[in-house]
Every structure is written in C-alpha cells, then in structure tokens.
C-alpha cells in the first residue's frame, strides 16, 4: 500500500505495525536529539485546502523529525484562490518532485482522486477529507487508548469506546469506528438522530441516543466537536439544549468509572460539547493526543516512505 487514504484499508496487522512503530518513535521525543536521518533528501508537501492548526503542525513536526524537507502549501494566498484546479496544483507538485503529499481538502474523496488519477507519483496521505475520513487522527486515538487501557501493547480487544456528538459531519468518527473495530474494540456512537449519517446502521458499531446510558460502562469517552461551520440547517433546537443532553460536564464525568479517559480530537468548543473543567481534568488525555499525533505520523511516513516499498500492506 503506497498511500494512506482510509482506515478501512488497514488490516489488524498493519494497524499494529503502525502503533508499535509509533511507540518506538515516541521514545525519541524524550531525547535531547529529536531527529532521525531516515527521510533525508525526501520532500513532503503539506497541501492544506482547509484551515488546520494541529494537524498541519503535527505533520510538519513529524516530517522534520525524520529529516524530510517540508513544503507547506495552504489554499489561502495560493493560486487556488485564483481558481486553480486540484489537477493543476497536483501537476505543479509533481514537477517539484514531491515524494509525499499530505492533503486536507473540504471535498470527501479528494485524496483518493489525487492518489489514483495518475497526476502524481507521490505517496498520498489523507489528513482529513470533507466528512469522509481522517486516518491519522484515528491512529493517534488508537495509540492513546492502547497506552492508557492496554499498557501500550497488543490490540484493543474488549475496550469500550463511546464517541459522542456530531457524527454526521465528523471524519474522525468514521475513521475511528473502522479502525477501532479492526483492533477489536466495541464502539458506541451517541448523538441526536439529526447528527447521525444515513447508513450508520451498517457501520460496525452500536448507536445510542442516550448519553448517560452510553457512557455508563465506557472505558473511554471521545467527544466530537460540533462543526458549526459545516452546518447549514438546524440540527438541534439550541446550543444550551445540545449541551444539556449531549455535552460532557463535571456532573456527567462524575458518573464515569474511575479508569475512564476523556478524549477530544480538537479544536474544542469549551462549554458546548465539553465543559472547560472536564477538558482540564485529570481524566482528559486531550493534550497527550496531540503529542501522540506526532509519533503516529512519523510512523506512517517512515513506513510509507522509508523503504524501497511501503511497509504497510502485503503489496506495495
């Protein structure tokens, strides 16, 4: 496998290889010398058509720690705002000799198009496409879950994860459901019916509309951001009502089992889906998710670009 487009493409063994590699790479972050020579002379382009803070910085840090050259490209201030097509942008990157393109795009399927249209020869890594997938986020979530609930080893068999909130607009939720299921976890989605996508009943997970019941025996609760920028209709009566029924506040957090961790992919709407004192509590692993993201992205880039052929999947 030359690209990372969807967590559906990862077998259990592929996912474990990425997590184990990330675990070794995480230890390098504790050293005074945080750089490896592995991708010296390779060029990684961060192609971001949507705003992003942590994902772009995380990919940039990961590529730089592996000694790759990084070119950041954001749609704002580029020829894209003059109307350049994805194809022409891709041909430009190909001409510049990019070895990997990390793409975030508002349109679901854009990374797939970039990888398979024959415009470029680079490896393509999906950094979030529309409401479709965000595979490296799911991998860093799995890494964080494994570290806290399985001592950092093996898969996630029997781990109960409840994902709460705006599933409809969330690429994080889809990638997580697929990956966590592959790794053996039991996933429950909890959201108002208006914020669940059509066809969610075919996903490998259970669905609940009752937050208190859904988090009662969870090992981890993952709160999703309410994506107001993608909402052009009324999905719930008011922010206050959403927060009351589907928000995680201190009172609800107190009902969780003692070992249960609270996650959020960020950026958070404090006071909306998650209360500030929950986000800053000892259960919260939200800041750790960010640092784990660098290790996981290093692992993905090393395995896809480090050798003559990809270390992920049976066929290159």
């Amino acid at each position: 496998m030359r690209h990372l487009l969807s967590t559906a493409d990862l077998t259990r063994d592929d996912a474990l290889l990425i997590l184990d590699t990330a675990a070794e790479l995480a230890r390098i972050s504790d050293r005074p010398m945080k750089k490896l020579p592995t991708l010296r002379g390779r060029t990684v382009v961060n192609l971001f058509f949507e705003d992003s803070t942590r994902t772009r910085i995380s990919f940039e840090a990961a590529a730089k720690r592996l000694s790759a050259d990084v070119i950041n490209f954001s749609a704002k201030g580029s020829s894209v705002s003059k109307g350049e097509s994805l194809k022409d942008t891709a041909l430009t990157l190909q001409a510049m000799g990019a070895d990997a393109v990390v793409i975030r795009h508002g349109a679901s399927g854009a990374p797939h198009r970039l990888a398979n249209a024959g415009w470029i020869e680079s490896t393509v890594i999906n950094a979030g496409d529309g409401t479709h997938e965000h595979p490296t986020q799911a991998l860093l979530d799995a890494f964080t879950l494994r570290r806290h609930l399985r001592d950092g080893e093996g898969d996630l068999t029997g781990v109960r994860v409840t994902i709460v909130g705006d599933v409809l607009h969330s690429r994080v939720a889809r990638s997580n459901v697929l990956l966590l299921h592959t790794l053996g976890a039991d996933v429950t989605l909890c959201a108002p019916p208006t914020l669940l996508p059509v066809g969610v009943d075919t996903w490998p997970c259970t669905v609940s509309y009752d937050l208190d019941a859904a988090i009662a025996d969870a090992d981890a609760v993952m709160m999703l951001r309410v994506q107001l920028e993608r909402m052009n209709a009324a999905y719930f009566p008011s922010a206050a009502e959403y927060s009351r029924r589907y928000g995680l506040d201190a009172q609800r957090m107190a009902t969780l089992a003692p070992h249960t961790i609270v996650m959020h992919p960020g950026p958070m709407n404090r006071g909306m889906e998650i209360a500030a004192d929950v986000a800053d509590s000892e259960r919260s692993v939200i800041v750790e998710q960010v640092s784990n993201g660098v290790s996981v992205r290093m692992a993905v880039m090393y395995l896809l670009l480090g050798g003559a052929e990809s270390g992920i999947g049976g066929i290159a």
Partner: peptide
C-alpha cells in the same frame, strides 16, 4: 534502508 521494504523498528 531505501533498498528494501520499510521494516518494523526494534527496541531501543
């Protein structure tokens, strides 16, 4: 490293 398939890391 670049002549062979990307390998799993071992423990340091």
């Amino acid at each position: 490293l670049r002549l062979k398939k990307a390998r799993a890391l071992l423990h340091t």
